[in-house]
Nucleic acid binder design. Structure first.
Length: 834
RNA sequence: GCCCGGAUGGUGAAACUGGUAGACACAAGGGACUUAAAAUCCCUCGAUCAUUACGAUCGUGCCGGUUCGACUCCGGCUCCGGGCACCA
């Protein structure tokens, strides 16, 4: 062993019961920054496999909070482990720097949001560095910089060319306090996701991106995401909300108009007894023109739907329009009603009502005394609709030529009938709507469009990009200062040269965060959004880590954007793949007293205070040890103390090196210790490979530390085994507590910094034991333990078990029925009274 | 209503493909060292019964099943958390 070279410089001050976290950490952070060990090689000749580890980038809100700390410590542990495993690791960081809080702060402090943002970035960068996170800072990006958002603008103009970005007047969600529109995804329970104010419906001209064109792909490709939590995949599937059915055209009696509806149950078409349309439906609006009672009702509907938070419990109300629709098959006239539960924004804003087979239609029909016609029955033919709707699939009755068909078959047959008579067709309907990307805000990426009276909305030509956001404007609340900034707004039309106006809206900040993972790969490119070769080398992200709160919003948009970039030819989709994140880890929240830490509740812990008191290694160790990564973590001061105690205990293990290697070799104990060492390597490695169970990995290392502590060093071989154990421990601790490990590694005379060492390998020979303790069970209950050779056969084991007094007394008066030997584990004896 | 999770000591949790339930920690209690404290070290720590030892019985939300053997698999529930929802 390398005992000869071992310089135990540590020994001189062994009265130091505590290690000096502050000095050690600063020392190593300086050293790492100088040696550039966190910068991956971008050299094609590098033989190592590449690995891209990414954590969700922070919004520069001012200070790091514990949620950040947890997120970044998890990512750092992964990145460091992979490096030690021999991967060439890309681990970048940056700032999601546009957004509303900067504007709010600007109003409060009467300084432009840029100042606040850049100051916060500086502050938080310092905090991240103090945590000793192994980022490649040379790739740092801030989304509010023109060199970043110019590519987003470029992309948007390309999407306009392709018809994937468009402007339209639409009923949108408006938040008054935030003074802007919101995407559907940003409305939670009818309220703004940021300020929790109920949103108002407004008709406004806005920019959209056609995410619905990608609905099917976004859904299909979910199957590729086996490395994602099922929960997140399910949430996305739910959000996209695919339903298959048919679109059916009803004609309107005494009119040229057509009433189109979507249904998932064309098999119940023959049971239609009335129609229901939304209050905003053209047919309803027209009918109300000379019906004041109806007009009043429509108005009531439009106000209620936005005010009422709990829409689901709202009373179902309706009113007849006095108009009839003609059934496409029977030609019968059925009344058209307006109903407050029909949504204008989904499907066609109209539904066919089959009260016999739909709960909601049933209630409505009962309330307003409308006909109920049963057209489906069960296998036994006795389904009853006198008390409630029969909503299951079944067999058709009262359906003329379709009688006797089963629901599944009937759906196809009826849809086909409609199609061939030009009265309908098969149809897939998604819940997902197009992504509303314009915001009436200042602190965001300017939308690269110029409005010309003659040419309309013209995309800013590539040569004129970026459209730079003036950073010196002062928001005062109310509308965006950009909308009043003449110097920004007044330009010539790029097409005709006439005086024109720039678009004053900016992009939703989710635009920036939708492609940053790919930008890191070519972070400094001035010639392209991403470099195709670099993309091939690094994308997709191997491991993405962040909060589950982004399960729909950010993760859906990023998946979408990746596909857009692929289809734009920015990289080879065959080689890079269609999904941006291969594996996803959604970490739990950091709680205090059972609730999420938040300033308003006053239950926060300042990371800087913890670092100052214990050092960042302790903070890192605690956040990783206290709970499995995906679970919520309850902050416990005593737990932090415990983590710190552990590090000091390891520190003190070095005192044992000072003892001279005297006495006889203890062959048995050396073998046992070496076995423990290699079992630990096995356990820790498995924990890393198996869902990043860092809590388990650390527990195993604590066990090893305990074994080393109680190990009685005897003889040269004893000392060698002890040193081997220390080396393994220090090496394996380094992804968690890198500074501490490096310092310990130096004491141990490592040839490299501990964080650059190779991950230890299991010595299979050390695991082998000649004698094992075999558990003896009677009827599956543990009754004793016997020492046997590792290869013991069943007969010998049974003989030894019978000879064991603890076991023997359970065998008295019993006949052995069956014996099961599980090699290396146990012997189970099945008996019955003799 | 639909879709996902989850339920193990006082607490956070562990248990790889069914094989010694509670590793590792926190808290608590006791002890050693100390003039004292801090720090450190040692012991106890699922429940019940028993005891001079040895021990025994029960125990992973509830009920049932499969198995030599179930925290783990199957069927049926209960409760808790998360997501979606007058979605046609």
């Amino acid at each position: 062993m390398l005992l000869g070279e071992l310089r135990v410089s540590h020994s001189g001050n062994c009265e130091h019961k505590h290690y000096d976290a502050q000095n050690i950490e600063i020392k190593w952070q300086k050293q790492w920054a100088e040696s550039g060990i966190d910068v991956p090689s971008n050299d094609a000749s590098d033989q190592r496999a590449n690995y891209y580890c990414l954590e969700m980038f922070p919004y520069p809100s001012g200070n790091l909070h514990m949620g950040h700390v947890r997120n970044y410590c998890l990512g750092d542990a992964v990145a460091r482990y992979k490096r030690m495993q021999g991967f060439n690791v890309l681990h970048p960081i940056g700032w999601d720097a546009f957004g509303l809080p900067a504007e709010n702060a600007a109003i409060k402090h009467k300084r432009p949001p840029a100042e606040w943002t850049y100051a916060n970035i500086d502050q938080m960068r310092g905090q991240l560095k103090r945590l000793g996170l192994s980022y490649d800072w040379s790739r740092e990006i801030a989304t509010c910089k023109p060199e970043y958002y110019r590519w987003e603008q470029w992309m948007f103009t390309k999407l306009m060319e392709k018809g994937l970005a468009y402007q339209k007047e639409a009923e949108v969600n408006w938040c008054d306090p935030c003074h802007t529109v919101l995407a559907n995804e940003q409305v939670e329970d009818g309220a703004c996701w940021r300020c929790d104010t109920p949103v108002v419906k407004k008709n406004l001209k806005q920019w959209f991106i056609k995410i619905t064109d990608y609905a099917e792909q976004l859904l299909d490709d979910l199957d590729q995401l086996s490395g994602w939590p099922e929960k997140v995949v399910g949430m996305q599937r739910n959000w996209i909300g695919k339903s298959s059915g048919a679109e059916v055209s009803f004609s309107v009696e005494n009119s040229d108009e057509v009433l189109d509806i979507f249904t998932t149950r064309p098999d119940t078409l023959m049971g239609v007894t009335y129609m229901a349309v939304a209050a905003a439906h053209p047919l309803a609006v027209k009918a109300a023109e000379n019906n004041t009672e109806l007009a009043v009702f429509l108005k009531e509907c439009s106000t209620i739907s936005t005010k009422e938070a709990d829409v689901a419990t709202m009373e179902k109300k309706g009113m007849a329009l006095g108009v009839n629709a003609i059934h496409p098959i029977t030609g019968e006239a059925v009344p058209v009603w307006v109903a407050n539960f029909v949504l204008m924004g989904y499907g066609t804003g109209a539904v066919m009502s089959v009260p016999a087979h739909d709960d909601r239609d049933y209630d409505f029909a009962k309330k307003y005394n409308l006909n109920i016609k049963q057209v489906i029955t069960n296998a036994a033919g006795d389904a009853d609709v006198s008390e409630a709707a029969y909503t299951d699939a079944g067999v058709l009755i009262n359906s003329g030529e379709f009688d006797g068909l089963k629901s599944g078959k009937a759906k196809k047959t009826i849809t086909h009938w409609l199609d061939s008579h030009d009265k309908g067709e098969e149809r897939i309907q998604y819940r997902l709507r197009d992504w509303l990307v314009s915001r009436q805000r200042y602190w965001g990426t300017p939308i690269p469009v110029i409005h010309c009276d003659d040419c309309g909305a013209v995309a800013v030509p590539e040569k004129d990009l970026p459209v730079v956001l003036p950073e010196n404007l002062q928001p005062t609340g109310g509308s965006s200062p950009l909308a009043e900034c003449e110097a920004f707004l007044n330009v010539d039309c790029p097409q005709c040269g006439k005086a024109a106006q720039r678009e004053a809206d900016t992009f939703d900040t989710f635009m920036e965060s939708s492609w940053y993972m790919n930008r890191y790969i070519s972070a400094r490119s001035e010639t392209a959004m991403v470099d195709a070769e670099d993309m091939q080398r690094w994308a997709p992200v191997d491991q993405y880590i962040g909060g589950v709160e982004h399960a729909v919003l950010h993760l859906l948009y990023a998946r979408f954007y990746h596909k857009l970039m692929r289809d734009m030819g920015l990289f080879d989709g065959e080689k890079v793949g269609s999904e941006p994140f291969k594996n996803l880890l959604t970490q739990g929240m950091v709680l205090m007293d059972g609730t999420k830490m938040s300033k308003s509740k006053g239950n926060t812990v300042d990371p800087s205070a913890i670092i100052e008191r214990y050092g960042c290694d302790t903070a890192r160790l605690f956040t990783l040890f206290a709970a499995p990564p995906e679970k919520d973590l309850e902050w416990e001061d005593s737990g932090v103390e415990g983590a710190h105690r552990f590090l000091n205990r390891v520190w003190r293990l070095f005192e044992k090196l000072n003892a001279d290697a005297v006495g006889e070799d203890g062959e048995k104990s050396v073998k046992d210790l070496r076995r423990t060492i290699h079992i630990t390597i096995e356990k820790v490695t498995r924990a890393f490979e198996h869902g990043f169970a860092f809590n388990v990995a650390i527990a195993a290392q604590m066990e090893l530390a305990n074994a080393l502590q109680s190990f009685d060093i005897q003889g040269e071989s004893g000392k060698a085994a002890f040193v081997e154990g220390l080396q393994a421990l220090v090496t394996m601790l380094s992804p968690f507590v890198p500074h501490f490990s490096c310092e310990c590694g130096e004491v141990l005379g490592f040839e490299k910094d501990a964080v650059m060492m190779s991950w230890p390998e299991v010595d299979a020979a050390a695991l082998v034991q000649d004698e094992i303790a075999l558990v003896v069970q009677i009827q599956g209950k543990k009754r004793g333990e016997i020492m046997v050779s590792k290869d013991v056969n069943q007969d010998d084991a049974l003989a030894l078990a019978k000879a064991d007094s603890a076991v023997a007394k359970w065998l008295e008066g019993m006949a052995i029925v069956k014996v099961i030997l599980v090699k290396g584990r146990l012997l189970n004896i099945v008996v019955r009274p003799a």
